[in-house]
């Protein structure tokens, strides 16, 4: 039992660090680039994807003995599309402004490769606990990667980092006022997304190489 827990935890941790879906596996690039112009968008998107990922892994894992191999992709797609619609409705009802900013990228979670990939690789072969651990890990890893990008782009693009929430909005970082007139507007525009992600992936690769080298020595 203890070992089982250990492997579940490893499955969870792998999703966040060792096998991060965005920064290492390079899956789910579209929302990663599109909605990371502010931290808030990145967090909401991360939460929506995590929800769909958890529900899809849950359903797939529960039905894994019933699903016939040749119809599995159809079942996955049906499941994912359903939960994405629910997520979309909930966002529209409770966070109208953010859902308007995310626009088509909420329904586009349907074709996010991370989700179908996790259903195919993990959930269809493993029990409930393991599949859920995997879904939460991957979801958290996705959210973390998006938040890092969102934070970098928001700070450089507007000179400050705010977590809006009406009266309770929280200013996390404020660059010196001298920076503001020269804020790198390009960072919140499309090219900034590509450039930031390219550099972040480069840094992550560099860290991984160093780790491998350290391990060998």
């Amino acid at each position: 039992m203890a070992e089982e827990n250990g492997s579940n935890f490893r499955q969870f941790r792998d999703g966040v660090i060792g096998n991060n879906p965005v920064l290492v596996q390079l899956l789910g690039m579209c929302p990663t680039l599109a909605v990371t112009n502010t931290l808030e968008n990145a967090l909401v998107m991360g939460a929506a994807v995590t929800f769909v990922l958890v529900m899809s892994n849950l359903v797939t894992s529960l039905l894994r003995h019933q699903i016939k191999p040749h119809v599995r992709i159809l079942v996955f797609t049906l499941t994912i599309a359903t939960f994405v619609t629910i997520a979309d409705l909930v966002l529209k009802a409770n966070m109208y402004e953010v859902s308007k900013k995310l626009g088509p990228f909420v329904p586009l979670i349907i074709v996010n490769c991370i989700i179908i990939c996790r259903a195919e690789v993990v959930a269809i072969k493993n029990g409930l606990a393991r599949s859920l651990a995997d879904a939460f890990g991957m979801g958290l890893g996705f959210t973390t990667a998006l938040s890092i990008l969102g934070a970098i782009r928001e700070i450089l693009g507007s000179g400050s980092l705010t977590l809006p929430g009406g009266a309770t909005s929280l200013k996390l970082v404020q660059l010196p006022a001298a920076f503001e007139p020269h804020a790198w507007i390009i960072m919140v525009l499309p090219p900034g997304a590509f450039l930031t992600l390219g550099v972040v992936i480069g840094i992550v690769n560099q860290l991984r190489y160093r780790k491998v080298k350290g391990g060998a020595a």
Partner: peptide, 28 residues
């Protein structure tokens, strides 16, 4: 399985839609 899932999912969506649609329209 697919037919059953289709029915179950359609019911779930219809449920979500009826509960939330009033609020969405209000937001707009």
């Amino acid at each position: 399985l697919i037919l059953l899932l289709g029915v179950v999912f359609a019911l779930m969506l219809a449920g979500a839609q009826t509960t939330l649609s009033a609020r969405i329209r209000e937001n707009q």
